[in-house]
């Protein structure tokens, strides 16, 4: 905010260096890596509204799924260019966010939470009924995806998908980082901290929240488009309430309102899920549950909050 500079710190290069390292060290994990990037983008979009805007939502999958279907339908019916699909998904999900946000952001707290749930249910129902466009519960199969920039075709090993998703996440992270460090981001945090006071200093709180919500929805839509493009499939599960819940769980796991929680949460969650599913195919969900209970009980700020506490203790000991 105004008190602290937003200069890039060396530590901020870590996620990107790790991403490159994974490419060399674990090439067989590239498809999983691409999925992690997609969830990072989705969680990043959630962090903008939940962490910075203080808008708690259980309906963000509506925009993720809307983006996924937009990219899928566009590719099936008109043009399979991935960047075009990505842009169309961002625009469509952003506009849906603007239209729905204009209604639901007039409410607060539990009412707002219920309305976000209602929106995801409505969008799911529409997608399920509009079989001519969406193929109903079967989903859109074999979505054609052209090579990225006309050169990099999506391959069996997932290399293109991996770097394509990484590049999109990098671009979106740059955007979100500058947003949350800008005066706009400061004002957004202001309305999260004290709504009444923001009104009293003449801030157009509703308009700001709507603006942030729409941007976040556009990002969620892009994450959905990435999923369609990398899996060549768009199904109703992208619109389900479970995905919204999962996104929130990942955000809480990583740390809410700290930008990098959206990187840590999905990575830990998906890697843990992958690992646990191999160890105990029947009970892997229990492991995730235990992890979450531990985080909520002992690390209220998520994994990054825990790191903060440990670093502060170390510093205190040294001094």
């Amino acid at each position: 905010m105004y008190s602290a500079p937003a200069r890039l710190r060396p530590l901020e290069a870590l996620p990107w260096l790790l991403a490159i390292a994974v490419y060399f060290a674990a090439p067989s994990y590239l498809p999983l890596g691409a999925y992690v990037f997609i969830m990072i983008l989705f969680t990043l979009s959630l962090d903008l509204v939940v962490g910075y805007g203080g808008i708690v939502t259980l309906g963000h999958s509506a925009y993720f799924g809307f983006g996924a279907y937009t990219a899928g339908i566009l590719a099936v019916r008109l043009n399979g260019d991935p960047l075009l699909g990505l842009a169309a998904a961002a625009l469509a999900a952003g506009l849906l966010g603007l239209a729905t946000g204009a209604v639901i952001l007039r409410t607060r707290a539990l009412t707002l939470l219920m309305l976000t749930l209602a929106i995801t249910s409505i969008v799911l129902e529409i997608a399920s009924s509009a079989t001519a466009l969406t193929n109903g519960s079967d989903g859109l199969h074999s979505v054609p995806v052209d090579p990225v920039l006309g050169r990099f075709a999506f391959d069996l090993f997932g290399t293109t998908a991996y770097f394509y998703c990484l590049a999109v996440v990098l671009a979106c992270w740059t955007l979100v980082r500058s947003l949350v460090n800008s005066p706009f981001g400061a004002a957004l945090v202001g309305s999260r901290e004290n709504d009444a006071r923001m009104h009293a200093i003449g801030a157009p709180v509703y308009a700001r929240r709507l603006q942030a919500y729409s941007i976040s929805c556009a990002l969620a839509g892009m994450a959905g488009a990435l999923l369609t493009q990398t899996t060549q499939f768009a199904g109703l599960s992208t619109l389900g309430f479970e995905l919204s819940g999962e996104g929130l769980v990942m955000l809480v796991l990583g740390g809410v309102g700290r930008l990098y929680g959206a990187f840590v949460g999905p990575t830990v969650y998906i890697v843990a899920r992958d690992y646990l599913a191999r160890q105990t195919p029947e009970y892997w969900y229990m492991g995730i549950g235990v992890l979450l209970v531990l985080i909520v009980l002992f690390a209220r700020g998520g994994i990054l909050g825990l790191v903060d506490v440990l670093v502060n203790r170390l510093r205190a000991k040294r001094s």
Binding site: A4, P5, N181, P183, G185, A186
Partner: peptide
């Protein structure tokens, strides 16, 4: 009106 600015860091205002 600085609060409307989306990209330049708050710190540099």
């Amino acid at each position: 009106g600085a609060a409307r600015k989306l990209f330049r860091p708050a710190f540099s205002h």
